[in-house]
Measured scan of single mutants.
Amino acid sequence: NKASVVANQLIPINTALTLIMMKAEVVTPMGIPAEEIPKLVGMQVNRAVPLGTTLMPDMVKNYE
């Protein structure tokens, strides 16, 4: 099973992601793959992301 990106803390709306906000975890359903973490740094979330939430592509602005 591949790990996904999971919020390590509450991430407020429009916050630019940093490494300490994210962790890799095997979850179902899968979200953004953990190997994308370096690419996510500096990208903004378009909603508040609660602690423990799996990051999905539609939660990150301009994620492709």
Rank of each mutant, 00 (worst) to 15 (best):
L55M: 13
Y63V: 12
G31N: 01
E35T: 10
A16S: 08
K2S: 10
I37T: 08
L19F: 05
A16K: 13
P38E: 09
N8C: 03
I20H: 04
V6S: 04
Q44G: 04
R47K: 09
P50K: 12
N62Y: 12
N62M: 11
E36D: 12
R47Q: 04
A24D: 05
V27S: 11
E36C: 02
K61Y: 11
K39A: 15
T53S: 14
I20M: 11
T18A: 10
P50M: 11
P33C: 03
T28A: 15
L55S: 01
Q44D: 07
A3H: 04
L40R: 00
A48E: 13
G52W: 14
L55P: 01
D58G: 06
N8I: 08
S4E: 00
P38F: 09
S4W: 03
A3Y: 13
I20F: 06
L40Q: 01
M30H: 11
M21G: 13
M43Q: 11
M59R: 06
P12L: 13
M21P: 01
G42E: 09
E35K: 15
A3T: 15
P38D: 14
N14C: 03
T28R: 06
M30I: 12
D58L: 10
P29V: 07
T28N: 14
Q44W: 10
V6Y: 04
K39Y: 11
T53R: 08
I32M: 05
G52S: 12
N14T: 07
E35I: 08
A34I: 10
I11Y: 01
T53M: 07
T18D: 07
V26K: 15
D58W: 08
M43G: 06
V26G: 03
N62S: 14
I20V: 14
V45C: 02
N14M: 09
M56Q: 05
G42N: 12
M59H: 05
V49E: 01
T53W: 15
P57H: 10
V5A: 10
I32F: 04
P50A: 08
I20G: 14
A34R: 04
A7K: 01
N46T: 09
P57N: 08
T15Q: 04
M56C: 02
Q44V: 13
L51K: 14
M56N: 07
P29S: 11
I37V: 07
P57K: 06
T53Y: 05
M30L: 09
V26A: 10
V60R: 00
K2I: 15
N1A: 13
E25Q: 06
V5P: 02
Q9D: 15
M21S: 07
I20Q: 15
N46P: 04
K2L: 07
I11G: 00
E25G: 07
M56P: 01
P50S: 13
K39G: 04
V60P: 01
P29R: 04
L51D: 12
V26P: 06
T28Q: 10
N8E: 04
K61E: 10
G31P: 01
V6I: 12
T54Y: 02
L51A: 04
V60N: 01
P50H: 10
V41R: 09
T18C: 03
T28L: 06
M43F: 10
V60M: 03
K2M: 12
T28G: 10
V6M: 13
Q44S: 15
A16H: 14
S4Y: 04
I32N: 00
P12M: 07
E36S: 06
G42T: 04
V26Q: 15
N46A: 09
L10A: 10
A34P: 07
I32G: 00
A24M: 06
G42R: 14
I11S: 01
P33L: 12
T18F: 14
P29Y: 04
K2F: 06
Y63E: 04
Y63C: 03
V41D: 13
M21V: 09
M59N: 07
P33F: 03
G42H: 08
P50L: 06
N1S: 14
M21H: 05
